[in-house]
Design a protein around this nucleic acid. Structure first.
Lengths: 245, 245
DNA sequence: ATTTATAAACGTCATATTTACGTTTATTTT
DNA sequence: AAAATAAACGTAAATATGACGTTTATAAAT
């Protein structure tokens, strides 16, 4: 394996996680901070996506997987390459220049952007060199480069994706309630569903399996817990070629 | 505008066209031919997608548009960036090596792949330096590099896209019959629809407009011609957040 | 122990959409 | 004028969706 970096090609990872408490779809970003040499002035103070150069002897997918692992320690998460970003001016905002000068970037770098879906509780933010933080996709902090743009495009892609494929379950704990699924759909899509209709629709799916277990520690009627069976989904799923234009 | 090529970044264009006569979804590819220096041996003889390096001061989209223009003379066609391809070995098949040696490629080139949808009759294959040819996506010739792979991924993306957006009309003449639309859907999706149901569904759309004109030169009852109004579509279209998992 | 509050869960009906067919119509060819 | 044929229209059952009202299980309060 050659570990030479390709100087002008990178991957960037938009990591989505869902907070069932605040019912917020979040993005994991990394603190970026730089002071002037004298330390008297803060040159850069914002957040960026995690990304890195692609190595000479590495596939793009492997590169993204590697970056995610360094960020979260996790492998085998849902991953999608959704778009390449390569505008000539994507790294040349005024506020990014000190950072670039410091890091020795190639100004014309094309980045292949991926998004990941994972269960928030699997990520340990403590044990890490970098300062990482979750932000609601609806309330992002100041972001460097074109990273806000990249996140928003990832989010648009996710919106479409979750209507056509059961990716929603990648963001939920293994055991979940119907209402949690509904809340998550609502967070992502920004619309509300009728709970009775939503519930009926989901429960009728063969791959949504009621388990012999109920929510604990709630001060009201505890919910029935369910699981998603990817195996059953794959078996019974048949593409409906419904033209919805 | 700097016309310096970025040596390791290219765009490749999958150009789709539809042949209403043969009812075939076709891809436009370019002949690739190379003889040994003595002329005694054919080193390369197959087809490739059209692509080119991205220029230093050019967006990826502009780069793709430029390549399409050089290939077809056309601008303003439907265009979608659908995936980046960057496996380390994507250009290093045995049969591609003589070509690469001849052209002076960078062996680790990442390509940003686009597909275009256009009306076959608008393309003039005659007046061009290169030898270009349409092939059915279901019956592709021998292709160089990873271009078969790229075409098949473009095709998969198109299949999904045409179910959700009215891109189908990019592939048809301005005036078309309902049956032509159905045939095209069937060619793309590889399934059959009931003509009576398909017809009703389409005719009920406000943006499918019957014009005061009928097919000519047919030896049976001539079909009613229709047009697609993108304006009306944009006005009345409302996203249905139908979860179909 | 009983009541109260509340979220979970079930039920019903009207409407819209899809699926699966049969029939009629307009045109060219014979 | 008849025959052939693709275009175009029609209908009924099944399924899915949307919009609501009601019941149930539990913890907390009385």
């Amino acid at each position: 394996m050659k570990f030479e970096k390709i100087p002008n090609i990178s991957v960037d990872c938009v990591v989505f996680g869902y907070d069932t408490i605040t019912k917020s779809l979040n993005v994991l970003v990394m603190k970026r901070y730089l002071e002037s040499e004298t330390g008297s002035e803060v040159l850069v103070d914002d957040y960026v996506l995690t990304g890195y150069h692609v190595y000479e002897n590495e596939t793009l997918d492997d590169s993204a997987t590697r970056v995610l692992k360094e960020l979260t320690g996790l492998t085998n998460q849902y991953k999608k390459q959704f778009k390449a970003f390569g505008d000539p001016d994507r790294l040349t905002n005024e506020k990014d220049l000190p950072w670039i000068k410091n890091e020795g970037f190639n100004l014309r770098t094309i980045t292949i952007a991926y998004y990941f879906l994972l269960k928030t509780e699997e990520v340990d933010l403590k044990n890490s060199a970098h300062q990482k933080k979750w932000f609601p996709v609806k309330d992002l902090p100041e972001l460097g480069f074109d990273h806000r743009h990249i996140i928003l495009e990832a989010y648009e892609d996710l919106k479409i994706k979750c209507l056509a494929e059961p990716v929603i379950f990648e963001l939920l704990p293994d055991k979940f309630t119907i209402n949690e699924v509904q809340d998550l759909y609502q967070s992502i899509l920004g619309i509300e569903f009728d709970n009775r209709n939503f519930r009926r629709k989901l429960i009728n799916k063969k791959y949504i399996i009621a388990i012999d277990e109920k929510q604990v520690g709630v001060s009201k009627k505890p919910s029935q817990l369910y699981m998603f069976s990817k195996d059953i989904y794959k078996k019974i799923f048949q593409k409906n070629y419904l033209i919805s234009i």
